[in-house]
Structures are given as C-alpha cells and as structure tokens.
C-alpha cells in the first residue's frame, strides 16, 4: 500500500482551488453540489440537532450529492439514532426526500429489502440508500450490514461516524477512539478512557467483503466527499461510505470548531481518507499541512486527561496511531513526510 494514487484530479490553480465550497473561477463540472443555488437541501432547516452538529451537515452533503447523482430518484432507509431523532419528531420531518424509518439495527436489511422490491418492480433506476450513525452501524446493525455486503445488495450504506452513542448520552461504541472519555469509559489515573486495544475499523472490514466500493470521507473536505458519493453511485451492488462527523456535545468541543476538528482529524492522520474497489485500496487523499495530534486533541474535552501529568504515554500512543495511519495509507508524499 505504499504507492497510492491521489483520489482526485488536480484542478487548475485558482485563488482557493477546490478547498472552499464554491469558487466563482472554477469550471461548472468542478463545482460542488453544495455551491449550487438549487441544491436539494434534502435535510432542511428546523431540525433539532445541537448547534454545530457535524452529522446534520454530513447528511445534507451526502444525500444532496446522491440526489444529483440519481437525478432525484432515490429512497433512504434510516437507522434509529441522533440523525433520526433530531430530523423526525412527529409530526414534523426535516427530510425533503423519500425516507423510511427503521430500527436501530436493521437499516441495512431494510435497504436490502427496498432494493429487492425495486428490482421486482423493474424500477432499478430508483437507487437505495441506508444510513445510520456509528453505533447503529458498527455495533447493533453490524450483522445486517455484513449480510447486505455478503449478498452484494444494490445499496449504498452511509455511516455518519461521530465515534459514540451521542443520542443516548455519549456512551462508547466500537468506533470510539482509544483514550476518549465517554459516559461508559471514564479515565481513571493513568488508565485511558477508552482502552487502546478495543474497537474495529469497519471500512477495512467492508473491504474484506470484496464489495465494489468502500470509502471514508470528512465533512471538512466537501469536494472529496461529493466525489466519493458520485463514484459510489456509479457502481451497482453493495457500497459503504463512512463520513467523519464531529459531535460538539459528545466530544466537548466548541460548536464553531466542527469543521476545524474534522480537518485536523484528517491532517493529523487520526482519520485517514481513502477509497477502495473490490477489496483493494485505490487512492488516498493526501494530507495538505501535517499537524501534530495535540492540535486536534486539545480542542476536545473528551481527551483533556491525556494532557495531565503522568499521562504522556497516552498522548504518545495517539501520535503513534496517527503516524501509523500516515505510513499505512500513504497520506503524505515521501519527500514531505517530516512534520
């Protein structure tokens, strides 16, 4: 995995390139869905997510991009979790797309069922999305998800990863990073909050199913995210896209720092952005300005204890994890590998 090509073609030089949401100097095909005046706003105003919610943002980014890729012909199945609770308190809904409620653990199965129904009706032009948070995906819904991958059902599964059960009071999930404090993993003395030796990497597990497409994305890199959604929709069969969505409430961060944290997670190497086809990694998004993990951790109260005296080993372990990601996924070109 040492030489991986970049996932995106370089654009011509402009003032802000494709780093900003829009850019009046870019050609039409290089512009993002979010920059268009008539974007779908699939997840509209008035929802009850907390201030600065990364998940609400990630869901709009992803579903708007799916709407464009499918010419608005899509159905979404939604796992129980923050995303469902804050968007659909009866009788209101913030969704302006066809959307179906499911249980905490069976969104992937509901998606599979809809896809089968569409096939039976001869309406395979209507594309199916299943979506949920990391708890409903990596823990509770994991059996249904693996089954969907196994059968290669024609569903794109979107996992909004905010690294814990935020809706029910910030409990640990199998996507919670090492050392993070949650309601169920409180740090005590030199012991980290969440132990370093547990958890799972679902994107890599999804690759193990040899499905057509697996990718990770971040709300801090919109063009990369939209590119990956469009790419996913160009395949038939089971696809998995995990989107990194900071949670100000669960992470103890400032509401205005949501994008900044997502950017720092990428730039420190804590959350590698890559894509894979049929079980093989095909590209990684390069780190633009590498940062030490401290810059990312110190903005979050869930990591406050790692900066305490005698807890230096926790900080070192987190930096080592980031360094390993950078080496493993080729996140930095060789000549720029020093901080």
């Amino acid at each position: 995995m040492d030489q991986v090509p970049e996932t995106k073609q370089k654009v011509k030089f402009y003032q802000t390139g494709t780093f900003t949401v829009g850019n009046r100097l870019l050609d039409d095909e290089e512009r993002s869905v979010q920059a268009t005046i008539d974007r779908s706003n699939s997840l509209d105003s008035g929802h009850r997510a907390c201030q600065g919610c990364g998940e609400a943002l990630g869901a709009r980014f992803a579903i708007d991009a799916v709407m464009r890729a499918t010419n608005n012909q899509m159905i979404a199945a939604n796992a129980t979790g923050c995303l469902e609770v804050f968007t659909t308190p009866y009788p209101e809904t913030a969704w302006s797309v066809p959307w179906i409620h499911s249980l905490f653990g069976n969104a992937a199965a509901v998606g599979s069922g809809i896809a089968a129904a569409m096939k039976a009706k001869g309406r395979e032009d209507i594309r199916v999305i299943a979506q949920g948070g990391d708890g409903g995906t990596t823990d509770i819904g994991f059996g249904c998800l693996s089954g969907m991958f196994d059968r290669n059902d024609d569903v794109l599964y979107l996992c909004y990863n905010n690294q814990g059960y935020m809706n029910t009071g910030v409990q640990r999930s199998s996507a919670t990073p090492g050392a993070a404090r949650t309601a169920t993993t409180m740090p005590v003395g030199p012991e980290p909050g969440n132990p370093f030796t547990v958890g799972k990497n679902v994107p890599l597990i999804a690759m193990g199913h040899q499905i057509p497409y697996v990718a990770t994305a971040s709300v801090s890199d919109l063009h990369d995210l939209e590119h990956k959604v469009a790419k996913a929709m160009s395949f038939r069969g089971a696809r998995y896209l995990e989107i990194f969505v900071p949670c100000p409430l669960g992470w103890g961060s400032k509401t205005c720092d949501t994008i900044k944290l997502a950017r720092l997670a990428v730039e420190t190497g804590m959350y590698p952005l890559f894509e894979a086809e049929y079980g093989e990694i095909t590209g990684a998004t390069k780190i633009r300005h590498r940062q030490p993990v401290n810059d990312y951790l110190k903005l979050q109260r869930r990591f406050a204890h790692v900066f305490k005296k005698d807890n230096e080993h926790q900080l070192e372990t987190l930096q080592a994890i980031a360094d390993r990601n950078i080496a493993k996924f080729g996140l930095i070109d060789a000549e720029r590998s020093k901080i």
Partner: peptide, 17 residues
C-alpha cells in the same frame, strides 16, 4: 420530482430554531 413524494409533509420549517 423526488420519487413517491405526493403530499406535503409536516415540515420541520415550522420549528424556528
């Protein structure tokens, strides 16, 4: 027009956050 949307839903726009 989005698939299967026929009626106006009770929209969250009623909720002035």
């Amino acid at each position: 027009k989005p698939f299967a949307i026929t009626l106006d839903v009770g929209t969250s726009l009623l909720n002035k956050t």
